[in-house]
Design a protein around this nucleic acid. Structure first.
Length: 200
DNA sequence: CGACCGATCGTCT
DNA sequence: GACGATCGGTCGA
């Protein structure tokens, strides 16, 4: 397993990076507990031009400030007052693009995931959906701005590559307010994974 | 199964 | 004062 480098995240094509993140392994080592899961669903948010993105029109606040940093940082924010959503910042400095990680297949540390989520059984809901996976991985807004190649949070490549016919795209979930941009096929997922959220 | 709804709070108007 | 890049429960068919 090799950690993805800055180069991986800082490329200019956020759609390409979102597709290539499928199959990679997200690892957290937080409060001494190590957990990992394989990424099976992502959504690209294409920056200032993208009405669904927090950085649409160059909007820049304390909350989304890290989107403007160089690729390779975590952007985590609170949604609906309850859920912490984990994003990967991409592209160069001052180009505010990010990729929302929407689903994982658990790989190890499942005991810790169950403890964090309070779930009694290990069905797929433990890491299905962006709010659920953040909880299982121990991620919260306290970790927004963390580097993705540090020792606490990173993404690694273990060599697995999904065949291209296994990778599908669709419009993004829950962005109806974005008008025409809500139709863009910026969501990518692994067709047959039972951990994928939302519709096919 | 699908539709609906409440929880809960930081951010922006 | 309104509204989410959500989730899980409930209700009815």
């Amino acid at each position: 397993m090799t950690k993805l480098s800055n180069k991986f995240y800082q490329r200019e094509d956020v759609l390409l990076v979102a597709q290539e993140l499928l199959g990679k392994v997200l690892v957290t080592k937080l409060a001494g507990n190590e957990t990992a899961g394989r990424i099976v669903e992502t959504e690209a948010y294409a920056g200032m031009e993208d009405k669904a993105s927090h950085s649409y029109g160059g909007r820049r606040t304390k909350r989304n400030e890290v989107m403007y940093a160089e690729g390779g940082h975590a952007y985590i924010y609170l949604c609906y007052g309850i859920h912490h959503l984990f994003n990967v910042v991409t592209n160069k400095n001052d180009i505010p693009q990010a990729i929302l990680i929407r689903a994982l297949e658990p790989m190890w540390g499942i005991k810790h995931m169950m403890k964090r989520t309070g779930k009694a059984k290990t069905d797929e809901t433990i890491t299905k959906g962006p709010g659920n996976l953040s909880k299982a991985m121990g991620l919260s807004v306290a970790h927004s701005g963390f580097k993705l190649m540090g020792k606490y949070i990173f993404i690694a490549d273990d060599g697995l590559v999904y065949p291209s016919q296994q990778i599908v795209s669709s419009p993004r979930i829950g962005v109806d307010y974005a008008g025409k941009d809500a139709q863009l096929p910026y969501r990518f997922f692994v067709k047959e994974s039972r951990y994928v959220s939302g519709g096919k």
